[in-house]
Design a protein around this nucleic acid. Structure first.
Lengths: 205, 205, 205, 205
DNA sequence: AATGAATGAGCCTTCATTCAT
DNA sequence: TATGAATGAAGGCTCATTCAT
């Protein structure tokens, strides 16, 4: 198991370093994190990190991109949903909870967006455009379709950002309490779905 | 106006330092902020900061408490609301937007909760207990009253955290985009109110 | 003796540091010299050096300017010379040996010009224009005057750079052998004067 | 041309490395030069350099010896000179300009003698004994012969170091200005020859 | 109360050198 | 012979903190 060839080792190193960097940056923040501690997490010395990443800043950016990758296929899955608009909206919300809220890596990505945004504005804007915006666009398209079909009522509430907001808010609560408090996630999600679907429902329902 | 006695000067110093610290900590984060830059903001040297605060950590905690003060009277105002439960809920939500979302200082307090939470967990927990929890309790009490009075339907949606979540989410969006993008706040708030009130409304309404 | 006030100490620091830097840069060269060793020479820590000079590069430039100062009054003295042109040329050459060749600080300045010129071209050019050029101009004026007066013969040899060259060459020998070999300075100077004066002498002399 | 057998390649490697080292050491100085950059100049990696030279220090010494080789036959040519002593001295001086002053490699050797002398005193002393001293001895012998033959006057000026000094001084000027200034070499050489020959000429001439 | 010179621990980054491939 | 991943000892520079004035 421990016997990897040099070439194999090398191919794995960047991802290893990035994963270690993720943990260290989360725990300490960009400035307080030490390159040496990142290296130590995978049993190498700091020189090795510099073989792959020229500066701490580049390492951070690369780490952010690396972590964001799995985020991308949430969208792919969102496109495959079936059923009435209400059913599909419900599924979209649930998908968001499962894949974003419940995945530590994407959750922590939001922490970086908030805490290191001043230092890496470009990074944040790119991530927003690539990850968040498409989900909002998908959600909005779904809502608009529901309105056209008479499933949802036409009114100001038909705004995807607001409909999905409780999921974002729960991630924030999770980041703030960081395991020190019970979020009552199942009940929260149920309330969210209930509010969204009732709030959007056409008057005759 | 500029002529303050030494005694007056002295009485103001701590608040001055705390305000300067707030700005610097926001822009740089706890670790990257420099005591010397905080001092420079009010035209003194770093030695002066140490006259009032023994360490950078203590300074940060004091700053957080100092910034949180105006937050407290949101609650007082919330208690004075009149009208039907729906009207009062509406007012409570609007109050939250006006006094929290729109106030830079309380908004940035949330940034600290997210970015420095690992370093100052006690601080975060205290703030949550003193500031957020009472508002949620007040909101929940209002909703529960509405349910008892038949104004609101009885169901899972009747959860204050979810009802208020869009306001929290908008603050987060504000922190992330930091002025680089239009949040469409008025439309967002309208949608939030519309969703909350329709989502909670009793069926016969 | 050891009792200096803070203010006095501070006023002396820059010069102290610059003198220490001079010694260290000579012994090690710019790149190999360590700021910490410079500081240690005057019994302070490296942080202190950075209180006065923001980078090692700036420190080096400041040191070069500091060392070059005494150089300047060689020129002033050169202007005061009396006697025939031959006597004044003789005195100028001797002045150069006494004040430049025999002064360790100006001698080492030439080493920096040669060894660190690639790194600090501006510095070298400035020094050349301020220190060497005026001496050559003075020497050339003297020679030209001698020619006009019939004291010196008119010919290609009447070129100050060549007439003074042996002095420069001796400095170079001194830098190369660095005390490991006897330069026979008195005999060398005598030969230089003899060559210059006979070489320039009008045919009839 | 580009097709060399491995064996040929191998035989050339050391010289290639030494040439590359020469360039890099000139541009950066011993300490600042990087082994990796030396390797890159000939399209290999630093490991290769270590195959041939165990340390950077050894590499530097080897480079100095390698560069000095062509220097040696200046002497051989000097021995072949014909004509009167004045003619032979003239030729010797010109030979020195052509072969030393005008050859970048030997010129830069002088820079190393001055800048890295403290680090490699043995190297400098060896070079001096092998390269400079013989030339001075040859020059001195020639002058002495001229004196004996009545061609040159007997006096202090008859010192080879002083007679040849302007050539050394011009090399130094070349090193200092490094192409940023016109040295007026032809005129300078003419002046040098004129001064030397007039300065040494017997009184009756 | 305010200053700012001085400290020294600490961190990012570099690079000569090693060695398994 | 050549490679280049990995090491680890440095070294430049920063900054929280101290303290004499």
């Amino acid at each position: 198991m421990k016997k990897l060839t040099r070439a194999e080792q090398k191919a794995l190193r960047p991802a290893q370093i990035l994963d270690a960097a993720f943990e260290e940056f989360i725990e300490q923040g960009y400035t307080a994190a030490r390159v040496e501690d990142i290296a130590a997490r995978i049993g190498v010395t700091k020189g090795t990190v510099y073989v792959y990443f020229p500066t701490k800043e580049v390492l951070f950016s690369a780490m952010a991109r690396h972590i964001a990758v799995p985020f991308e296929d949430v969208l792919a899955d969102a496109k495959k949903l079936n059923g009435s608009c209400a059913e599909r909206l419900r599924s979209l919300i649930l998908l968001f909870y499962e894949r974003v809220m419940e995945d530590r890596r994407t959750r922590e990505l939001l922490r970086f967006a908030i805490s290191e945004g001043v230092r890496f504005p470009q990074l944040i804007d790119d991530h927003y455009a690539e990850l968040i915006e498409p989900i909002l666009v998908t959600g909005q398209a779904l809502i608009d379709e529901g309105v056209r079909q008479g499933e949802f009522r036409d009114g100001p509430a038909a705004l995807a950002r607001v409909i999905l907001a409780p999921a974002l808010a729960l991630i924030v609560e999770a980041l703030i309490h960081d395991g020190r408090r019970d979020l009552e996630t199942p009940r929260y999600i149920e309330a969210h779905l209930d509010l969204a679907l009732h709030g959007l429902a056409a008057a005759s329902s």
